[in-house]
């Protein structure tokens, strides 16, 4: 089957064809064995896929969710402060508290810098090898925390990370383009002045989010998918 047939078959299953297209496609289904076989297989797979995730229906909806919906408007506001079931600890760990930020966009700058520590891994080598969730010390006062990996709209492997240095914390996204990690966007979250964090600037804190909205394809990679993607993109040993 060619790409067009696969798309037509898929759209037919999803009831997305016009009357004319549907009628024409059904005529083909009646005479084209390969197409008919694919139709059967896709339908079965859809059913299995649906059933696999419908399994959650067997577990009752938690009262904590139902009570949110059934409370009066006034109670809903109160419940958000006092009455909501405690979430798991990792759920309360929210993304770095972005008070405000100062945007530094370094479009397409290769991630080349090393921290001048003889044994410290470069940023690029950490991006090539470590899974998200890890925090890696790349110099005495510099840590790199890997947040997530994703595929961008052009199919490149991209990684979001946070670079904490003695006087600043930066949120960055780099994508591997032509075998080289290239910074796509960077946002300074904090500048440290004296003993206190200081807001670098006001505004601009949504820039990374906006960039992700425009450029990320789907959702972040699972650990397994991330591992496979890193293996595929890793530099070949010489």
């Amino acid at each position: 089957m060619n790409k067009s047939d696969i798309e037509m078959l898929s759209a037919y299953l999803d009831n997305e064809l016009s009357e004319a297209e549907r009628s024409h496609f059904e005529e083909r289904l009646a005479t084209d064995e390969v197409l008919a076989e694919a139709f059967t297989k896709y339908s079965e797979n859809d059913q299995v896929y649906r059933e696999a995730f419908s399994a959650i229906d067997e577990t009752p909806v938690p009262d904590s969710i139902l009570s949110l919906i059934s409370e009066s408007e006034k109670d809903v506001l109160l419940s958000n402060q006092h009455n909501v079931v405690e979430l798991k600890k990792w759920r309360r760990v929210k993304w770095l508290p972005i008070a405000a930020s100062f945007l530094i966009i370094a479009l397409s700058l290769p991630v080349l810098f090393n921290m001048n520590e003889p044994d410290s891994p470069s940023v690029a080598s950490v991006l090539d090898s470590q899974l998200s969730g890890q925090k890696v010390e790349i110099a005495a006062t510099t840590n790199l925390e890997l947040v997530m990996s994703f595929i961008d709209q052009q199919g490149h492997l991209c990684r979001e990370y946070v670079l904490s240095q003695s006087n600043s914390v930066e949120q960055k996204i780099a994508c591997k383009i032509d075998g080289m990690w290239q910074t796509q966007i960077s946002d300074t979250l904090y500048n440290l002045g004296g003993n206190h964090y200081q807001v670098a600037s006001s505004g601009g804190s949504d820039k990374i989010e906006n960039w992700l909205d425009l450029n990320m394809s789907g959702i972040p990679l699972s650990t397994r998918a991330e591992e496979a993607a890193l293996n595929r993109s890793a530099p070949q040993e010489k």
Binding site: I56, W90, W95, L131, S132, M148, R224
Partner: peptide, 27 residues
């Protein structure tokens, strides 16, 4: 919201290990 949660997870090495047993027992 799920993307936010993934990004805030400190350890993501277990998220692929629970699924088969979950699905198995549930269906």
């Amino acid at each position: 919201a799920w993307i936010d949660e993934l990004r805030s997870r400190k350890i993501r090495t277990i998220d692929d290990n629970v699924e088969v047993s979950q699905i198995e027992s549930s269906t």
